[in-house]
Design a protein around this nucleic acid. Sequence first.
RNA 1: CGGGGUGUGGCGCAGCCUGGUAGCGCGCCUGUUUUGGGUACAGGAGGUCGUGGGUUCGAGUCCCGCCGCCCCGACCA
Length: 439
Amino acid sequence: MRLSHGFIPTLKETPAEAQITSHRLMLRAGLVRQTSAGIYAWLPLGLRVLRNIERIVREEQDRSGAQEILMPTIQPAELWRESGRYDGYGKEMLRITDRHDRDMLYGPTNEEMVTDLFRQSIRSYRELPQILYHIQWKFRDEVRPRFGVMRGREFLMKDAYSFDLDHAGAVVSYRKMMLAYMRTFQRMGLKAIPMEADTGPIGGDLSHEFIILAPTGESQVYYDAAFEEIDYLANDAGGFSHDQPDDLARFFQMMTTHYAATDEKHDVARWDQLSADRKREGRGIEVGHIFYFGTKYTKAMGATVAGPDGKPVHPEMGSYGIGVSRLVGAVIEASHDDAGIIWPDSVAPFKAAILNLKTGDAACDALCERLYASLGGNALYDDRPDRAGAKFADADLMGHPWQLIVGPRGAAAGKVELKRRATGERVEVTPEEALGRIG
RNA sequence: CGGGGUGUGGCGCAGCCUGGUAGCGCGCCUGUUUUGGGUACAGGAGGUCGUGGGUUCGAGUCCCGCCGCCCCGACCA
């Protein structure tokens, strides 16, 4: 993309409504624009990040054996009356009436709908387990939206639902998702900690929240310093298989033996057993939440399969959510500096920015065009006829992992300057070498 | 939903107390200039002052209602 004609409206000054870093940077770097309280339009740069995060989530769900579907945003009230949640959900649910006066709603979550799909089609325990997921926009009419996309009313969420014959099977599904989640967050450059959590209105008795640490987080969290030492990347390389219950048990064990809880579930007695030098507390951002809730919905909605003895059984369910749009903000909270965003390579909207420090200079233009042709869609070419300073500032703000800086001096000598945004390190190399390093 | 704040060109703000026909910085357009970290100069475009009503000869400014947005709290991916 050429910046001169890109729809990337960067701002020099911070809009007054943005209070926290990620929100400010998302507005300043031209990722999103607010359309009403807690509702955002995604602009090209922001959408590319959102899609990258979505892609990673999808790949890890697929790897775990979950199957992607796509359920609608609008749901009939009838299903929610069956589960008993239509009245219970309160004003947070956006209720709609269609032209025939039927009660509809904009889905805040999909337990009812997926259970309905399940009961229509799955007849036998032989077809279990099933894990279904989709990545879809949700609407929760929050009393007080805030923090930009971190607590919007409309948000993109990956939600998965597991169906197992019995409790033991449900536990395996739960652990599968925990593994998938840790891999997912790790690939985005985030260090997430699974913490014991409340089950909330979804219900159930086993639940973990995935928290990344950030001073601006909404939850107060307490955890054992052991989590700072666990390197699940290394363990991952050692190999945990989604298909081996023993692996999953080992992984689950590793992630849950040490103390970690949000304030709702904080157990002071257990906490005090930790020595002072191992106690860690701080703020965290919830980026995922998994629940086991058994037969709550399958019973309420009459979903059964034939068991081995031919008698009907209510399958055991779990649900598993990742806040996809929230993650865009969360990644920024975890990775930025005074100049702007520092995108991890895996989610960056562009791998590299090409900075033409002197547009109109034949050597600069030619070299930039060459680099741009090689990098194609992976590069954002700053071909604006602006001053060098403005280009440096915008490139840092937008946070591309690499900057290819082309000035008259270098261009004449056939060299470009390659800057790594995360470290600030710059080297002067040939264009070929630069392209090689960017990969 | 309780408490607090705010609404004036695209962004950031002043003007309101003490009513007299809208201003500053940035950005944008044109020209000159500058050319490796948001250059300088000159000219220019752009505003129903959130909205409805009221007071007044006259309202951005005073009064009343409504709406939007932000912050703190309670609640949540």
